[in-house]
Write a protein that binds this DNA or RNA. Structure first.
Length: 550
RNA sequence: GCGCCCGUAGCUCAAUUGGAUAGAGCGUUUGGCUACGGACCAAGAGGCUGGGGGUUCGACUCCCUCCGGGCGUACCA
Protein backbone atom coordinates (compact mmCIF):
# COMPACT_ATOMS: atom_id res chain seq x y z
CA UNK A 1 0.00 0.00 0.00
CA UNK A 2 1.03 3.60 -0.46
CA UNK A 3 2.47 5.27 2.62
CA UNK A 4 1.13 8.56 3.83
CA UNK A 5 4.36 10.19 2.80
CA UNK A 6 4.10 8.94 -0.76
CA UNK A 7 0.49 10.11 -0.93
CA UNK A 8 1.35 13.57 0.29
CA UNK A 9 4.34 13.85 -2.01
CA UNK A 10 2.15 13.10 -5.00
CA UNK A 11 -0.49 15.62 -4.00
CA UNK A 12 2.12 18.28 -3.34
CA UNK A 13 3.66 17.77 -6.74
CA UNK A 14 0.26 18.18 -8.33
CA UNK A 15 -0.36 21.44 -6.48
CA UNK A 16 3.09 22.81 -7.32
CA UNK A 17 2.74 22.02 -10.98
CA UNK A 18 -0.75 23.44 -11.12
CA UNK A 19 0.71 26.68 -9.82
CA UNK A 20 3.51 26.48 -12.33
CA UNK A 21 6.13 26.68 -9.55
CA UNK A 22 8.23 23.67 -10.50
CA UNK A 23 9.11 21.31 -13.32
CA UNK A 24 9.23 17.51 -13.32
CA UNK A 25 12.80 17.41 -12.06
CA UNK A 26 12.06 19.21 -8.83
CA UNK A 27 12.73 17.22 -5.66
CA UNK A 28 10.28 17.73 -2.84
CA UNK A 29 11.76 17.29 0.61
CA UNK A 30 9.51 16.01 3.32
CA UNK A 31 10.82 15.26 6.75
CA UNK A 32 9.65 14.51 10.23
CA UNK A 33 9.95 17.56 12.49
CA UNK A 34 11.65 17.03 15.82
CA UNK A 35 9.03 18.99 17.68
CA UNK A 36 5.57 17.43 17.92
CA UNK A 37 3.87 20.82 17.57
CA UNK A 38 5.26 21.03 14.05
CA UNK A 39 3.15 18.14 12.89
CA UNK A 40 4.01 14.76 11.42
CA UNK A 41 5.63 15.83 8.18
CA UNK A 42 6.96 19.17 7.04
CA UNK A 43 8.19 20.55 3.77
CA UNK A 44 10.50 23.45 3.02
CA UNK A 45 9.49 23.82 -0.66
CA UNK A 46 8.25 27.36 -0.20
CA UNK A 47 11.62 28.43 1.19
CA UNK A 48 13.50 26.66 -1.55
CA UNK A 49 11.43 28.54 -4.14
CA UNK A 50 12.18 31.96 -2.65
CA UNK A 51 15.10 32.80 -4.90
CA UNK A 52 13.35 31.53 -8.03
CA UNK A 53 10.02 33.27 -7.46
CA UNK A 54 11.40 36.29 -5.62
CA UNK A 55 8.50 36.30 -3.22
CA UNK A 56 7.90 36.00 0.48
CA UNK A 57 8.14 32.32 1.49
CA UNK A 58 5.05 32.41 3.67
CA UNK A 59 3.01 33.76 0.76
CA UNK A 60 4.30 31.03 -1.51
CA UNK A 61 3.41 28.48 1.12
CA UNK A 62 -0.11 29.85 1.39
CA UNK A 63 -0.49 29.63 -2.38
CA UNK A 64 0.61 26.01 -2.36
CA UNK A 65 -1.79 25.16 0.42
CA UNK A 66 -4.61 26.79 -1.46
CA UNK A 67 -3.93 24.57 -4.49
CA UNK A 68 -3.49 21.44 -2.41
CA UNK A 69 -6.33 18.96 -2.60
CA UNK A 70 -6.10 16.12 -0.08
CA UNK A 71 -8.36 13.62 1.64
CA UNK A 72 -9.14 14.98 5.10
CA UNK A 73 -9.18 11.43 6.51
CA UNK A 74 -5.50 11.09 5.66
CA UNK A 75 -4.21 14.64 6.03
CA UNK A 76 -6.11 16.13 8.92
CA UNK A 77 -4.18 19.36 9.12
CA UNK A 78 -1.91 21.56 7.03
CA UNK A 79 -0.61 24.98 7.93
CA UNK A 80 2.09 27.48 7.21
CA UNK A 81 4.54 27.88 10.06
CA UNK A 82 7.82 29.48 11.01
CA UNK A 83 9.84 31.03 8.23
CA UNK A 84 7.80 29.30 5.55
CA UNK A 85 7.50 25.64 6.41
CA UNK A 86 4.31 23.83 5.63
CA UNK A 87 3.38 21.41 8.39
CA UNK A 88 1.11 18.44 7.84
CA UNK A 89 -0.71 16.32 10.35
CA UNK A 90 -2.03 12.88 9.57
CA UNK A 91 -5.49 11.97 10.77
CA UNK A 92 -5.88 9.18 13.30
CA UNK A 93 -7.77 7.28 10.61
CA UNK A 94 -4.60 7.08 8.56
CA UNK A 95 -2.57 5.68 11.44
CA UNK A 96 -5.21 3.17 12.42
CA UNK A 97 -5.41 1.87 8.86
CA UNK A 98 -1.64 1.73 8.48
CA UNK A 99 -1.34 -0.44 11.57
CA UNK A 100 -3.05 -3.35 9.88
CA UNK A 101 -0.35 -3.23 7.19
CA UNK A 102 2.26 -3.96 9.83
CA UNK A 103 0.32 -7.00 10.90
CA UNK A 104 -0.07 -8.20 7.33
CA UNK A 105 3.59 -7.72 6.48
CA UNK A 106 4.78 -9.47 9.63
CA UNK A 107 8.42 -10.52 9.39
CA UNK A 108 8.59 -8.69 6.06
CA UNK A 109 7.70 -5.35 7.60
CA UNK A 110 10.62 -2.99 7.13
CA UNK A 111 12.06 -4.84 4.16
CA UNK A 112 12.04 -3.45 0.65
CA UNK A 113 13.51 -4.23 -2.75
CA UNK A 114 15.13 -0.99 -3.84
CA UNK A 115 18.48 -2.78 -4.13
CA UNK A 116 17.11 -4.70 -7.12
CA UNK A 117 19.23 -7.71 -6.33
CA UNK A 118 22.46 -5.86 -7.11
CA UNK A 119 25.45 -7.91 -6.00
CA UNK A 120 27.24 -6.42 -3.01
CA UNK A 121 30.22 -7.85 -1.24
CA UNK A 122 31.28 -6.84 2.20
CA UNK A 123 34.64 -7.94 3.51
CA UNK A 124 35.39 -7.59 7.19
CA UNK A 125 37.25 -8.82 10.24
CA UNK A 126 39.98 -10.35 8.03
CA UNK A 127 42.32 -10.48 11.01
CA UNK A 128 45.72 -12.06 10.59
CA UNK A 129 45.45 -15.77 11.32
CA UNK A 130 48.37 -15.47 13.68
CA UNK A 131 46.43 -15.14 16.91
CA UNK A 132 43.03 -15.07 18.54
CA UNK A 133 40.48 -12.41 17.63
CA UNK A 134 40.47 -9.36 19.87
CA UNK A 135 37.79 -6.89 20.80
CA UNK A 136 38.41 -4.67 17.78
CA UNK A 137 37.60 -7.62 15.58
CA UNK A 138 34.49 -8.15 17.66
CA UNK A 139 33.33 -4.65 16.83
CA UNK A 140 34.05 -5.07 13.14
CA UNK A 141 32.31 -8.43 13.18
CA UNK A 142 29.13 -6.98 14.64
CA UNK A 143 29.10 -3.89 12.44
CA UNK A 144 29.87 -5.77 9.24
CA UNK A 145 27.30 -8.42 9.91
CA UNK A 146 24.56 -5.89 10.59
CA UNK A 147 25.50 -3.81 7.54
CA UNK A 148 25.25 -6.92 5.41
CA UNK A 149 21.86 -7.78 6.90
CA UNK A 150 20.68 -4.24 6.27
CA UNK A 151 21.69 -4.49 2.63
CA UNK A 152 19.80 -7.74 2.35
CA UNK A 153 16.77 -6.14 3.96
CA UNK A 154 16.61 -3.50 1.26
CA UNK A 155 16.94 -5.92 -1.58
CA UNK A 156 20.62 -6.38 -2.36
CA UNK A 157 22.25 -9.74 -2.90
CA UNK A 158 24.99 -9.78 -0.31
CA UNK A 159 27.98 -11.95 0.46
CA UNK A 160 30.07 -11.72 3.60
CA UNK A 161 33.71 -12.48 3.11
CA UNK A 162 36.75 -12.98 5.30
CA UNK A 163 40.18 -12.55 3.75
CA UNK A 164 42.78 -14.87 5.22
CA UNK A 165 46.35 -13.59 5.03
CA UNK A 166 47.87 -17.04 5.03
CA UNK A 167 50.99 -16.13 3.12
CA UNK A 168 54.03 -14.03 3.77
CA UNK A 169 56.19 -12.95 6.64
CA UNK A 170 53.63 -12.92 9.45
CA UNK A 171 52.76 -16.53 8.97
CA UNK A 172 56.42 -17.54 8.75
CA UNK A 173 57.02 -15.72 12.02
CA UNK A 174 54.16 -17.60 13.58
CA UNK A 175 55.72 -20.90 12.49
CA UNK A 176 59.08 -19.93 13.95
CA UNK A 177 57.49 -18.79 17.19
CA UNK A 178 55.59 -22.03 17.65
CA UNK A 179 58.65 -24.00 16.68
CA UNK A 180 60.79 -22.28 19.29
CA UNK A 181 58.23 -23.06 21.99
CA UNK A 182 57.86 -26.60 20.77
CA UNK A 183 61.59 -27.24 20.86
CA UNK A 184 61.83 -25.71 24.27
CA UNK A 185 59.25 -28.16 25.57
CA UNK A 186 61.55 -30.91 24.31
CA UNK A 187 64.45 -29.31 26.10
CA UNK A 188 66.09 -28.16 22.89
CA UNK A 189 67.27 -24.67 22.24
CA UNK A 190 65.89 -22.77 19.30
CA UNK A 191 66.18 -19.04 18.98
CA UNK A 192 62.90 -17.23 19.38
CA UNK A 193 62.44 -14.93 16.36
CA UNK A 194 63.02 -11.23 16.88
CA UNK A 195 59.56 -10.05 16.09
CA UNK A 196 57.82 -13.29 16.95
CA UNK A 197 54.53 -13.78 18.71
CA UNK A 198 54.73 -13.75 22.47
CA UNK A 199 51.16 -14.55 23.36
CA UNK A 200 50.38 -17.44 25.67
CA UNK A 201 48.45 -19.12 22.89
CA UNK A 202 51.72 -19.79 21.05
CA UNK A 203 52.99 -21.96 23.86
CA UNK A 204 49.64 -23.66 24.12
CA UNK A 205 49.68 -24.47 20.43
CA UNK A 206 53.15 -25.98 20.81
CA UNK A 207 51.96 -28.06 23.71
CA UNK A 208 48.93 -29.30 21.80
CA UNK A 209 51.03 -30.25 18.83
CA UNK A 210 53.49 -32.08 21.04
CA UNK A 211 50.67 -34.06 22.60
CA UNK A 212 49.05 -34.79 19.25
CA UNK A 213 52.05 -35.48 17.09
CA UNK A 214 54.83 -36.26 19.53
CA UNK A 215 58.36 -35.12 18.78
CA UNK A 216 58.30 -35.89 15.08
CA UNK A 217 58.78 -32.23 14.08
CA UNK A 218 62.00 -32.08 16.07
CA UNK A 219 63.73 -34.38 13.63
CA UNK A 220 62.85 -32.34 10.58
CA UNK A 221 65.12 -29.78 9.04
CA UNK A 222 64.57 -26.32 10.45
CA UNK A 223 62.91 -24.91 7.34
CA UNK A 224 60.66 -27.90 7.02
CA UNK A 225 59.68 -27.76 10.68
CA UNK A 226 58.84 -24.08 10.52
CA UNK A 227 56.76 -24.60 7.45
CA UNK A 228 54.78 -27.54 8.80
CA UNK A 229 54.23 -25.98 12.18
CA UNK A 230 53.13 -22.70 10.70
CA UNK A 231 50.59 -24.45 8.52
CA UNK A 232 49.32 -26.45 11.45
CA UNK A 233 49.19 -23.43 13.72
CA UNK A 234 47.45 -21.35 11.10
CA UNK A 235 44.71 -23.90 10.53
CA UNK A 236 44.19 -24.37 14.23
CA UNK A 237 43.92 -20.63 14.82
CA UNK A 238 41.64 -20.19 11.84
CA UNK A 239 39.34 -22.87 13.15
CA UNK A 240 39.14 -21.25 16.56
CA UNK A 241 38.39 -17.90 14.89
CA UNK A 242 35.56 -19.55 13.01
CA UNK A 243 34.28 -21.07 16.23
CA UNK A 244 34.21 -17.76 18.07
CA UNK A 245 32.53 -15.98 15.19
CA UNK A 246 30.03 -18.80 14.92
CA UNK A 247 29.18 -18.44 18.59
CA UNK A 248 28.70 -14.76 17.83
CA UNK A 249 26.05 -15.69 15.30
CA UNK A 250 28.21 -14.68 12.36
CA UNK A 251 28.79 -16.95 9.38
CA UNK A 252 30.88 -15.84 6.46
CA UNK A 253 29.88 -16.97 2.99
CA UNK A 254 33.47 -17.10 1.83
CA UNK A 255 36.81 -17.55 3.57
CA UNK A 256 39.17 -16.34 0.88
CA UNK A 257 42.81 -17.33 1.10
CA UNK A 258 45.64 -15.10 0.00
CA UNK A 259 47.66 -18.18 -0.90
CA UNK A 260 45.11 -19.03 -3.60
CA UNK A 261 45.91 -15.77 -5.33
CA UNK A 262 49.62 -16.39 -5.09
CA UNK A 263 49.33 -19.98 -6.25
CA UNK A 264 47.66 -18.95 -9.45
CA UNK A 265 49.88 -15.90 -9.90
CA UNK A 266 46.95 -13.51 -9.83
CA UNK A 267 49.27 -10.74 -8.64
CA UNK A 268 51.50 -11.22 -11.69
CA UNK A 269 48.51 -10.82 -13.96
CA UNK A 270 47.50 -7.61 -12.27
CA UNK A 271 51.05 -6.34 -12.50
CA UNK A 272 51.02 -7.05 -16.25
CA UNK A 273 47.71 -5.30 -16.70
CA UNK A 274 48.89 -2.23 -14.85
CA UNK A 275 52.13 -2.23 -16.85
CA UNK A 276 50.27 -2.50 -20.16
CA UNK A 277 48.18 0.47 -19.15
CA UNK A 278 51.39 2.37 -18.47
CA UNK A 279 51.00 2.88 -14.74
CA UNK A 280 54.14 1.02 -13.70
CA UNK A 281 57.76 2.15 -13.76
CA UNK A 282 61.06 0.94 -12.37
CA UNK A 283 63.24 2.88 -10.01
CA UNK A 284 66.09 1.75 -7.75
CA UNK A 285 65.41 -1.82 -8.75
CA UNK A 286 61.80 -1.77 -7.58
CA UNK A 287 58.56 -1.61 -9.54
CA UNK A 288 56.32 1.32 -8.69
CA UNK A 289 52.67 2.09 -9.29
CA UNK A 290 51.85 5.65 -10.33
CA UNK A 291 49.14 6.05 -7.71
CA UNK A 292 49.72 9.81 -7.64
CA UNK A 293 47.92 9.94 -10.99
CA UNK A 294 44.80 8.89 -9.14
CA UNK A 295 44.98 11.14 -6.13
CA UNK A 296 47.39 9.31 -3.83
CA UNK A 297 50.08 11.43 -2.22
CA UNK A 298 53.01 9.31 -3.41
CA UNK A 299 53.69 6.39 -5.70
CA UNK A 300 53.75 2.91 -4.18
CA UNK A 301 55.96 -0.11 -4.56
CA UNK A 302 54.45 -3.20 -6.17
CA UNK A 303 57.55 -5.36 -6.36
CA UNK A 304 60.53 -4.76 -4.11
CA UNK A 305 64.10 -4.62 -5.34
CA UNK A 306 64.44 -8.12 -3.89
CA UNK A 307 61.81 -9.22 -6.37
CA UNK A 308 59.16 -9.81 -3.69
CA UNK A 309 55.59 -8.77 -4.46
CA UNK A 310 54.33 -6.37 -1.81
CA UNK A 311 51.23 -7.00 0.22
CA UNK A 312 49.70 -4.12 -1.70
CA UNK A 313 50.14 -5.82 -5.07
CA UNK A 314 48.50 -9.02 -3.86
CA UNK A 315 45.74 -6.97 -2.30
CA UNK A 316 45.05 -5.29 -5.64
CA UNK A 317 44.78 -8.72 -7.21
CA UNK A 318 42.40 -9.71 -4.46
CA UNK A 319 40.08 -6.79 -5.12
CA UNK A 320 40.24 -7.34 -8.87
CA UNK A 321 39.19 -10.90 -8.18
CA UNK A 322 36.13 -9.61 -6.35
CA UNK A 323 35.08 -7.72 -9.44
CA UNK A 324 35.68 -10.87 -11.50
CA UNK A 325 33.12 -12.54 -9.31
CA UNK A 326 30.51 -10.09 -10.62
CA UNK A 327 30.10 -7.90 -7.59
CA UNK A 328 29.20 -4.37 -8.55
CA UNK A 329 29.70 -2.81 -5.13
CA UNK A 330 32.51 -3.61 -2.74
CA UNK A 331 32.83 -2.58 0.87
CA UNK A 332 35.83 -3.21 3.11
CA UNK A 333 35.78 -2.63 6.85
CA UNK A 334 39.23 -1.70 8.11
CA UNK A 335 40.79 -0.67 11.36
CA UNK A 336 41.95 2.91 11.97
CA UNK A 337 45.59 1.93 11.55
CA UNK A 338 44.95 1.20 7.87
CA UNK A 339 43.18 4.37 6.87
CA UNK A 340 46.29 5.69 5.13
CA UNK A 341 45.99 2.73 2.81
CA UNK A 342 42.63 3.75 1.35
CA UNK A 343 43.80 6.23 -1.33
CA UNK A 344 46.27 3.79 -2.89
CA UNK A 345 43.71 0.99 -3.04
CA UNK A 346 41.16 3.25 -4.65
CA UNK A 347 43.84 4.50 -7.03
CA UNK A 348 44.74 0.98 -8.10
CA UNK A 349 41.13 0.01 -8.79
CA UNK A 350 40.58 3.17 -10.80
CA UNK A 351 43.73 2.47 -12.78
CA UNK A 352 42.37 -0.98 -13.58
CA UNK A 353 39.27 0.70 -14.94
CA UNK A 354 36.69 -0.21 -12.32
CA UNK A 355 33.97 2.39 -11.87
CA UNK A 356 34.59 5.19 -9.44
CA UNK A 357 32.54 4.81 -6.30
CA UNK A 358 32.02 1.08 -6.69
CA UNK A 359 34.54 0.40 -3.94
CA UNK A 360 34.46 1.96 -0.51
CA UNK A 361 36.19 1.50 2.80
CA UNK A 362 34.56 1.98 6.16
CA UNK A 363 37.02 2.67 8.93
CA UNK A 364 35.96 1.19 12.25
CA UNK A 365 37.55 3.14 15.04
CA UNK A 366 39.20 1.62 18.04
CA UNK A 367 37.61 0.05 21.08
CA UNK A 368 38.49 1.01 24.65
CA UNK A 369 37.49 -1.48 27.27
CA UNK A 370 36.47 0.21 30.49
CA UNK A 371 36.55 -1.53 33.81
CA UNK A 372 35.56 0.40 36.91
CA UNK A 373 35.85 3.55 34.83
CA UNK A 374 39.43 2.81 33.82
CA UNK A 375 40.70 1.98 30.35
CA UNK A 376 42.09 -1.54 30.24
CA UNK A 377 45.47 -1.26 28.56
CA UNK A 378 46.22 -3.74 25.85
CA UNK A 379 49.46 -4.55 24.14
CA UNK A 380 49.72 -6.98 21.28
CA UNK A 381 53.50 -7.09 21.46
CA UNK A 382 53.52 -8.36 24.99
CA UNK A 383 50.69 -10.70 24.17
CA UNK A 384 48.38 -8.85 26.49
CA UNK A 385 45.09 -8.60 24.69
CA UNK A 386 41.53 -9.18 25.71
CA UNK A 387 40.27 -11.87 23.43
CA UNK A 388 36.91 -11.74 21.78
CA UNK A 389 36.13 -15.07 23.36
CA UNK A 390 36.68 -13.76 26.88
CA UNK A 391 34.48 -10.78 26.17
CA UNK A 392 31.64 -12.98 24.96
CA UNK A 393 31.95 -15.18 28.01
CA UNK A 394 31.80 -12.12 30.23
CA UNK A 395 28.92 -10.17 28.72
CA UNK A 396 27.14 -12.50 26.31
CA UNK A 397 26.48 -12.27 22.61
CA UNK A 398 23.37 -10.07 22.74
CA UNK A 399 24.96 -7.37 24.82
CA UNK A 400 28.22 -7.39 22.88
CA UNK A 401 26.52 -7.06 19.50
CA UNK A 402 24.16 -4.36 20.68
CA UNK A 403 26.93 -2.30 22.29
CA UNK A 404 29.28 -2.59 19.33
CA UNK A 405 26.69 -1.54 16.79
CA UNK A 406 25.26 1.25 18.93
CA UNK A 407 27.98 3.75 18.01
CA UNK A 408 28.84 5.45 14.77
CA UNK A 409 31.71 3.61 13.14
CA UNK A 410 33.80 6.80 12.89
CA UNK A 411 33.76 7.26 16.64
CA UNK A 412 36.01 5.41 19.02
CA UNK A 413 33.95 3.20 21.27
CA UNK A 414 34.16 2.98 25.02
CA UNK A 415 32.95 -0.43 26.00
CA UNK A 416 31.82 -0.23 29.60
CA UNK A 417 32.24 -3.75 30.97
CA UNK A 418 30.41 -2.94 34.17
CA UNK A 419 27.38 -1.61 32.34
CA UNK A 420 27.49 -4.47 29.87
CA UNK A 421 27.42 -7.02 32.67
CA UNK A 422 24.69 -5.20 34.50
CA UNK A 423 21.45 -7.13 34.09
CA UNK A 424 19.26 -4.34 35.33
CA UNK A 425 17.38 -1.43 33.90
CA UNK A 426 20.56 0.52 33.25
CA UNK A 427 21.43 -1.83 30.47
CA UNK A 428 19.67 -0.77 27.25
CA UNK A 429 19.77 -4.27 25.83
CA UNK A 430 17.63 -5.63 28.63
CA UNK A 431 15.35 -2.65 28.43
CA UNK A 432 14.60 -3.42 24.80
CA UNK A 433 14.36 -7.16 25.25
CA UNK A 434 12.10 -6.68 28.23
CA UNK A 435 9.59 -4.84 26.07
CA UNK A 436 9.44 -7.83 23.77
CA UNK A 437 9.12 -10.31 26.64
CA UNK A 438 6.44 -8.21 28.26
CA UNK A 439 4.34 -8.25 25.09
CA UNK A 440 4.68 -12.01 24.77
CA UNK A 441 3.50 -12.31 28.31
CA UNK A 442 0.46 -10.11 27.81
CA UNK A 443 -0.63 -12.07 24.74
CA UNK A 444 -0.17 -15.27 26.70
CA UNK A 445 -2.12 -13.86 29.61
CA UNK A 446 -4.96 -12.93 27.27
CA UNK A 447 -5.08 -16.45 25.88
CA UNK A 448 -5.24 -17.88 29.37
CA UNK A 449 -8.26 -15.70 29.99
CA UNK A 450 -9.89 -17.06 26.84
CA UNK A 451 -9.13 -14.01 24.77
CA UNK A 452 -7.40 -15.42 21.71
CA UNK A 453 -5.64 -13.15 19.30
CA UNK A 454 -8.43 -11.57 17.19
CA UNK A 455 -8.95 -12.23 13.49
CA UNK A 456 -10.65 -8.87 13.16
CA UNK A 457 -10.35 -5.79 15.28
CA UNK A 458 -11.76 -2.31 15.16
CA UNK A 459 -8.56 -0.28 15.09
CA UNK A 460 -10.52 2.97 15.17
CA UNK A 461 -10.70 2.47 18.90
CA UNK A 462 -6.99 3.26 19.16
CA UNK A 463 -7.19 6.99 19.59
CA UNK A 464 -5.32 7.66 22.82
CA UNK A 465 -2.17 9.74 22.63
CA UNK A 466 0.09 6.90 23.75
CA UNK A 467 -1.52 4.56 21.22
CA UNK A 468 -1.10 6.92 18.30
CA UNK A 469 2.47 7.67 19.31
CA UNK A 470 3.25 3.98 19.38
CA UNK A 471 1.77 3.49 15.91
CA UNK A 472 3.80 6.43 14.59
CA UNK A 473 6.96 4.89 15.98
CA UNK A 474 6.18 1.55 14.36
CA UNK A 475 5.61 3.18 10.99
CA UNK A 476 9.02 4.83 11.10
CA UNK A 477 10.73 1.47 10.86
CA UNK A 478 10.83 0.86 7.07
CA UNK A 479 12.31 4.29 6.41
CA UNK A 480 14.80 3.79 9.20
CA UNK A 481 16.02 0.53 7.69
CA UNK A 482 16.49 1.98 4.23
CA UNK A 483 18.27 5.09 5.54
CA UNK A 484 20.53 2.98 7.74
CA UNK A 485 21.47 0.84 4.74
CA UNK A 486 21.84 3.77 2.38
CA UNK A 487 24.12 5.73 4.71
CA UNK A 488 25.96 2.68 6.10
CA UNK A 489 24.83 3.56 9.58
CA UNK A 490 23.78 0.48 11.50
CA UNK A 491 23.93 2.41 14.77
CA UNK A 492 20.50 3.76 13.97
CA UNK A 493 18.97 0.40 14.82
CA UNK A 494 19.89 0.35 18.52
CA UNK A 495 18.86 3.99 18.85
CA UNK A 496 15.51 3.26 17.26
CA UNK A 497 14.97 0.16 19.39
CA UNK A 498 15.45 2.13 22.57
CA UNK A 499 12.95 4.73 21.39
CA UNK A 500 10.44 2.11 20.38
CA UNK A 501 10.78 0.23 23.67
CA UNK A 502 10.34 3.47 25.60
CA UNK A 503 7.24 4.38 23.61
CA UNK A 504 5.80 0.95 24.29
CA UNK A 505 6.53 0.97 28.03
CA UNK A 506 4.89 4.38 28.22
CA UNK A 507 1.76 3.04 26.52
CA UNK A 508 1.74 0.04 28.83
CA UNK A 509 1.74 2.16 31.91
CA UNK A 510 -1.08 4.38 30.78
CA UNK A 511 -3.39 1.77 29.34
CA UNK A 512 -4.32 -1.78 30.18
CA UNK A 513 -4.49 -4.15 27.25
CA UNK A 514 -6.69 -6.96 28.58
CA UNK A 515 -9.90 -5.55 30.04
CA UNK A 516 -13.62 -6.35 30.09
CA UNK A 517 -14.05 -4.20 27.03
CA UNK A 518 -13.78 -6.92 24.37
CA UNK A 519 -13.52 -4.60 21.38
CA UNK A 520 -10.85 -2.42 22.88
CA UNK A 521 -8.93 -5.45 24.11
CA UNK A 522 -8.84 -6.83 20.58
CA UNK A 523 -7.64 -3.56 19.10
CA UNK A 524 -4.88 -3.25 21.70
CA UNK A 525 -3.83 -6.84 21.19
CA UNK A 526 -3.27 -5.99 17.55
CA UNK A 527 -1.30 -2.93 18.55
CA UNK A 528 1.06 -4.81 20.85
CA UNK A 529 1.38 -7.67 18.39
CA UNK A 530 2.55 -5.15 15.79
CA UNK A 531 5.00 -3.74 18.33
CA UNK A 532 6.29 -7.22 18.95
CA UNK A 533 6.74 -7.72 15.20
CA UNK A 534 8.80 -4.57 14.80
CA UNK A 535 10.90 -5.23 17.89
CA UNK A 536 11.60 -8.74 16.65
CA UNK A 537 12.41 -7.60 13.12
CA UNK A 538 14.83 -4.95 14.35
CA UNK A 539 16.51 -7.28 16.81
CA UNK A 540 16.84 -9.88 14.09
CA UNK A 541 18.74 -7.43 11.92
CA UNK A 542 21.07 -6.81 14.85
CA UNK A 543 21.52 -10.49 15.49
CA UNK A 544 20.24 -10.01 19.03
CA UNK A 545 17.71 -12.44 20.48
CA UNK A 546 14.10 -11.46 21.14
CA UNK A 547 13.27 -13.49 24.26
CA UNK A 548 9.73 -14.47 25.18
CA UNK A 549 10.67 -14.69 28.84
CA UNK A 550 13.52 -13.21 30.79
C1' G B 1 55.55 18.88 9.53
C1' C B 2 51.56 16.62 6.50
C1' G B 3 47.02 13.44 6.11
C1' C B 4 42.56 10.98 8.27
C1' C B 5 39.06 10.44 12.52
C1' C B 6 37.05 12.48 16.99
C1' G B 7 35.47 16.86 20.37
C1' U B 8 27.61 17.94 21.88
C1' A B 9 24.38 17.90 29.46
C1' G B 10 28.58 15.37 35.23
C1' C B 11 29.29 10.29 32.10
C1' U B 12 28.16 7.30 27.39
C1' C B 13 26.02 8.85 22.97
C1' A B 14 21.87 10.71 19.24
C1' A B 15 20.23 14.63 16.09
C1' U B 16 15.89 12.50 9.80
C1' U B 17 22.84 14.19 6.17
C1' G B 18 21.60 22.18 5.74
C1' G B 19 15.83 23.00 8.92
C1' A B 20 12.04 25.40 13.35
C1' U B 21 12.78 25.33 20.66
C1' A B 22 19.96 20.44 20.00
C1' G B 23 17.36 15.01 22.12
C1' A B 24 17.92 9.91 24.80
C1' G B 25 20.09 6.57 28.52
C1' C B 26 22.98 6.52 32.99
C1' G B 27 23.82 9.64 37.25
C1' U B 28 21.20 13.43 40.24
C1' U B 29 16.40 15.70 42.71
C1' U B 30 11.14 14.74 43.47
C1' G B 31 6.90 11.81 42.86
C1' G B 32 4.14 7.19 41.18
C1' C B 33 3.03 1.37 40.72
C1' U B 34 -1.51 -4.14 45.57
C1' A B 35 -3.23 -4.60 37.67
C1' C B 36 -1.22 -7.93 31.65
C1' G B 37 6.14 -8.96 34.93
C1' G B 38 8.89 -3.09 39.30
C1' A B 39 14.37 -5.33 34.17
C1' C B 40 8.53 -0.18 34.59
C1' C B 41 6.41 4.98 34.55
C1' A B 42 5.90 10.60 35.51
C1' A B 43 8.04 15.50 36.64
C1' G B 44 12.47 18.73 37.43
C1' A B 45 17.54 20.44 37.24
C1' G B 46 21.55 20.06 33.86
C1' G B 47 24.13 23.26 27.03
C1' C B 48 27.75 29.71 24.21
C1' U B 49 27.40 21.89 20.29
C1' G B 50 36.11 22.86 22.14
C1' G B 51 37.38 28.67 20.66
C1' G B 52 37.10 32.29 16.65
C1' G B 53 35.77 33.70 11.65
C1' G B 54 33.00 32.73 7.03
C1' U B 55 29.12 30.70 3.38
C1' U B 56 22.78 31.76 3.48
C1' C B 57 16.47 32.72 4.46
C1' G B 58 18.64 28.96 8.25
C1' A B 59 24.90 25.72 10.60
C1' C B 60 26.09 20.53 15.61
C1' U B 61 26.11 19.58 10.23
C1' C B 62 29.58 22.83 4.75
C1' C B 63 34.49 26.12 4.21
C1' C B 64 38.87 28.56 6.74
C1' U B 65 41.73 28.98 11.25
C1' C B 66 43.31 27.81 16.18
C1' C B 67 43.21 24.39 20.61
C1' G B 68 42.90 19.38 22.62
C1' G B 69 42.84 13.74 21.94
C1' G B 70 43.56 9.22 18.79
C1' C B 71 45.69 6.98 14.43
C1' G B 72 48.68 7.05 10.23
C1' U B 73 52.78 8.99 7.45
C1' A B 74 58.06 2.00 4.71
C1' C B 75 60.99 -1.26 -1.18
C1' C B 76 56.07 -4.01 6.68
C1' A B 77 51.77 -6.53 6.73
Amino acid sequence: MMTGEQYLREKLRKALQEKGFVDDEFQITLDRPKVAEHGDLATNVAMVLVSKLRRNPREIAADILQALDVDAEIIAGAEVAGAGFINFRFGNGYYQAALSDVLTAGAEFGRSDCGNGERVQIEFVSANPTGPLNVVSARAAAVGDVMAELFKAVGYTVEKEYYVNDAGRQVRLLGKSVSARYMKLLGKDEVFPDEGYHGDYVGELAKTFLEQYGDRFANLKEEKRWQELSELALNTILQSQKDVLGAYGLHFDIWFRESDLRDRNAHREVLDTLSEKGFVYEEKGAKWFKSTQFGDEKDRVLVTSEGEPTYFLVDIAYHADKYDRDFTRLYDLWGPDHHGYVPRMKAALLALGYPEGSFDVIIIQQVNLLQAGEVVKMSKRAGKIIEMQELLEEVGVDVARFFFVARRTQSPLDFDMDLAKNTSEENPVYYVQYAHARICNIIKHAEERDVPFPKQANLKLLGQKEEINLIKKLLEFPDLVSKAAQHLEPHRLPTYLQELAATFHRFYHHHRVVTDDKELTNARLVLIRCTQIVLANALKLLGVSAPERM
